[in-house]
Design a protein around this nucleic acid. Structure first.
Ligand SMILES: [Mn+2]
Ligand SMILES: [Mn+2]
Ligand SMILES: [Mn+2]
Ligand SMILES: [Mn+2]
Lengths: 218, 218
DNA sequence: AAACAAATTTAGACTAGTCTAAAAATTATT
DNA sequence: AATAATTTTTAGACTAGTCTAAATTTGTTT
């Protein structure tokens, strides 16, 4: 039996490890989980005992295959619920995260299979993040970050890195969402801000915005 | 802050007290919650401290108005989710209970309001139980139990009392569901079993079945 | 009214998860 | 290579919820 807290730690480690590729340190986990390092250490030991993680004292943590499987499944559930909330229940993309954070822990294979079918097997969530299929395979899309886009080329917005309410609402109020067509007009060398062309407007975005927006050539 | 366990106890007390009208004793709560009486006592004290219940040692428990409000809200969520599972995700009426038991604890007013609207404000769940509205008002239907039905009168099945998988599957396999038209042909005085007329068949049901099926005159 | 039985509460212990404070190990700096 | 700074772990305590076993209260019988 896996607890809700264990699931949250496993998911956090998965994300911090860049989808299970890097070693993660205790402080990073504690920060992500909003607990103290001592609590993280305790949980890491438990995850290690339960075979979700590999761990040697002072040497950081990696997820086992088993741990990755669990993480990917939670992420699948999280993102499917996000799609449900936006597509069926009129949530906006900045409102879904907190609720999905809880819904992701409901344990029922039938529930998630049927939800997936009901939503017609979506491949991406409302923030452009890929939804792994039942076997844990991600539908990879090759995207670049706005900060590295080429001048004069037309791109489509396909995702965001930062999913905070503040950022998503900033995008809303500037008319940027998934699917928006963006062409870079000018990059200011001084602060790396960019002037970008949208459908009916030209706006200037800071580098911190440009680093959090993913694009794909149209 | 109310915990998941507190919510489950409050809901159990609500049901045991016949919707908040009777005093409930410790052993009944312990049995309903599948814990021991000592655990129930501890929780009762806590609910009392938090103003969800009124309690005097050895004298049993009642819910406060506050406690009833919480109970009705959980029941609302539980039943709305059950409708969702059956109507949208192809669950059968014997599969929904366990999942709804978890979904009922998700805390988001927007979620439940939108779900209610998405389902077009259903008044009853898949077992015929009424769904309280946002203000906690139940849409009362006047139903009688099959065991007390009159011979020769046509009734419509509108609910079940027992929602166990075994009972619901028994009904399925005998062609009885919500909406089924039933006419009592004969009541056997010896064991109170009944011969009942369905659309295309006549079957005999025991008294324990007859006590768990709710009907309404057509 | 005393004795017995049943229901309920208390006492003390256990697990999961958290915290603070202190100790130990690792890494960086001189 | 020694010292300092940082990171991580340990020790011990706390809360929520549970348990067993014992004590207490209430209810029922004689
Ligand atoms: Mn979560
Ligand atoms: Mn998302
Ligand atoms: Mn529940
Ligand atoms: Mn129901």
């Amino acid at each position: 039996m896996i607890t809700l807290t264990e699931e949250n730690y496993i998911k956090a480690i998965y994300h911090l490890s860049n989808n299970g590729t890097l070693t993660v340190n205790t402080n990073a986990i504690a920060e992500a989980m909003k607990t103290k390092a001592s609590s993280a250490t305790d949980m890491i030991k438990k995850l290690s005992e339960k075979n979700y993680a590999d761990y040697k004292k002072y040497q950081g943590v990696t997820l086992t295959e088993n741990g990755k499987r669990v993480a990917v499944n939670i992420i699948r559930k999280h993102r499917l619920w996000e799609v449900f909330l936006v597509e069926k229940l009129n949530f906006t993309w900045d409102e879904v995260h907190e609720v999905a954070e809880h819904l992701e822990h409901i344990k029922s294979d039938k529930l998630i299979d049927e939800l997936d079918a009901f939503l017609e097997h979506p491949t991406h969530d409302p923030h452009g993040d890929p939804i792994p299929d039942k076997n844990g395979n991600f539908h990879h899309i090759d995207k670049i970050v706005l900060a590295k886009a080429n001048i004069g080329v037309a791109y489509k917005c396909v995702g965001v890195d930062d999913t905070s309410t503040a950022f998503l609402q900033y995008l809303d109020s500037n008319g940027i969402g998934l699917g928006t067509i963006i062409t870079v007009k000018y990059r200011e060398p001084y602060d790396n801000s960019m002037r970008i062309q949208l459908k009916n407007s030209e706006i200037i975005v800071s580098n911190s915005v440009a680093k959090n927006l993913y694009l794909k050539k149209v």
